[in-house]
Write a protein that binds this DNA or RNA. Structure first.
Lengths: 149, 149
DNA sequence: GACTCATGTAATAAATTAAGTTACATGAAA
DNA sequence: TTTCATGTAACTTAATTTATTACATGAGTC
């Protein structure tokens, strides 16, 4: 399966957005991801509807954050994206009457459901500010290593 | 994303195999999954290499279990399949130098890695005999409900 | 008001991957 | 030697993500 990178992508975009004060255009954001502006708009559409970001058309327009990073969890972003599929493994259902198939899928489903609960709890507990803090730490360390020479 | 159903499929096949005493051909197994015999052989190849099943060519040949279900965990099957990807979400890496991208991916990776550990622990703790037991329970219940009339 | 900049979105193409199919080689039993 | 069955490579099909193109809409500037 070709993997879905929307979650990683949109987080990257949002954190860049939060680093700036004024609006950023889709075109500029696309440069960060090395992709097309339309891809940015498409992903941001859900976040706008969820009230996480604001878009403005015309001159001087672009994207800005609607809330501080501390008020946005990874879970908020995930939901705003439309809660994309988390797991790559699916259940085969070509013989729904087959009790073996039912038992197999029930077992798998129980395992995956618990992993999903854990994952979503992690998402809820992680704010974008936490990720931004990690970024700032990395930036400090980076500056420290590149300055000393 | 098109989901990978190999784990679900192969478990279905194995449990049918375990229900029988004599060898079953790929063609017959394919009927259970409503698929092609080659698909069965392809998936079973890994299980054979892992020593979970035995294949015999020629007349009266086919597939048989190499071990009792109690001796096979879901994790064994998962590994024998080649440990296929569990998660559908990937990390975008178009700007490896970008510290924001690094921080985002590190955060996601930490969450997904923990979910993966949990999932694999579940896999280790679940034997195929457990799933077979669930199947037998379902069969009993099924017979009970279809007999009473 | 005309022009430019920017988003909004539909439609399409390209790339990737899982599953299905065909073809043929190999080996074992009748 | 014929038949049955696996082993495997090659190719096709279908689903899905991402990228691209095209054009409509709206907001600010001249």
């Amino acid at each position: 399966m070709k993997s879905d990178n929307k979650l990683s992508s949109i987080l990257h975009v949002i954190l860049h957005l939060a680093e700036h004060q004024q609006a950023i255009t889709s075109e500029t954001l696309a440069l960060y991801l090395k992709t097309n502006p339309v891809v940015i708009r498409r992903m941001m559409a859900g976040l706008r509807q969820a009230g996480l970001v604001i878009s403005v058309k015309g001159h001087g327009g672009g994207w800005t954050m609607a809330k501080p990073l501390t008020a946005i969890s990874l879970h908020d972003v995930y939901q705003a994206l439309g809660a994309p599929r988390l797991f790559a493994q699916g259940y085969r259902q070509d013989a729904p009457q087959c009790l073996i198939e039912q038992a197999v899928n029930a077992s798998l489903d129980s395992a995956f459901a618990e992993a999903e609960r854990l994952l979503l709890q992690k998402f809820i507990g992680l704010s974008l500010a936490d990720i931004a803090a990690d970024f700032k730490l990395r930036r400090q360390q980076h500056q420290a290593t590149t300055t000393q020479e």
